[in-house]
Amino acid sequence: MDQLLFLIIEGARNLWRHKLTALGAVFSVFFTLFLIGVLLVMNDNTDKLINYFRGKYKIEVFFNESVSNEQASKLVKNIRTIPGVRSTTLISKEDAMSIFKSQFDEDVMELLGYNPFPASCVVNVIKQKNVSLSVEPIIHRIKSLDGVSEVHYQGRLIKRIESYFQKFLKAITYLSGVVLVISIIIISNTIRLTIYSKKELIRALELIGATKLFIQVPFMVEAMIHGLIGAVLASVTIAGSVIFVNAKLGVLYNVSLELNGIIIALWLTGIGLFISLLGSQRAIARFLK
């Protein structure tokens, strides 16, 4: 028990003894965890982002003038069954007239003596981020329905947004993998340098009869402390960045980023501990005969 306590304290004291190398290691952990944290925040907010953009999609379907409200209602029900459609809103002939009246302050009935507006509907598409959305098939199905006169939609814009979104998802996935691998290599090399600077200590310990475990434990404790400090700094920086970005975004676009602070901090701590321990193990193994 005394020995274990000594080894833990020794690991902690090594941080102070080798302040500069410890600073380098902590910075590497912090930097890589910050990148990973940014990716986690982006992943968390993808849903929100795609909801925001897809919420802007609007497909307006105008029926023939001869289509009655009842027939329009049936058509709307049909449209709702098309894959990719989340909801529909029927705008009856009367609704259309009152919308016109509210917007232009003109009573068409008084002017023309009849209601010229066709029934129509607004189609909302699905918002889930995991579902790839292609609007063309939906439009094609709607157009093929009897009674549909015109379909208005922002085809090119939707296509472009969806294509960017798919690229973004792929990029995030690849980037996460690359950042993780790079971070393990960077941390491993930093710790290797740290340990290289302590090869004298390792040699002295070997000569006085220290077992491999005795030599390894302080380095592992030290690496865990590097990981923890790096994770705390990265979590705080990410939280600060999200608050800053939200303050700016809120003013301009009235949207805000979500931050699952505790979950992200836990992830970063776990990853920080894992890569620090892995890095220290790899580095120590090189110096222990």
């Binding site: 040699r203 077992t211 005795f214």
Partner: peptide
């Protein structure tokens, strides 16, 4: 065995020309 060597060294005291003292403590 390699893992027995530390236990042998615990029974031997070693003194070196270059001391092998640790400068950081």
């Amino acid at each position: 065995k390699k893992n027995s060597i530390p236990f042998l060294r615990r029974r031997i005291g070693m003194v070196f020309q270059d001391y092998q003292l640790l400068d950081d403590r």
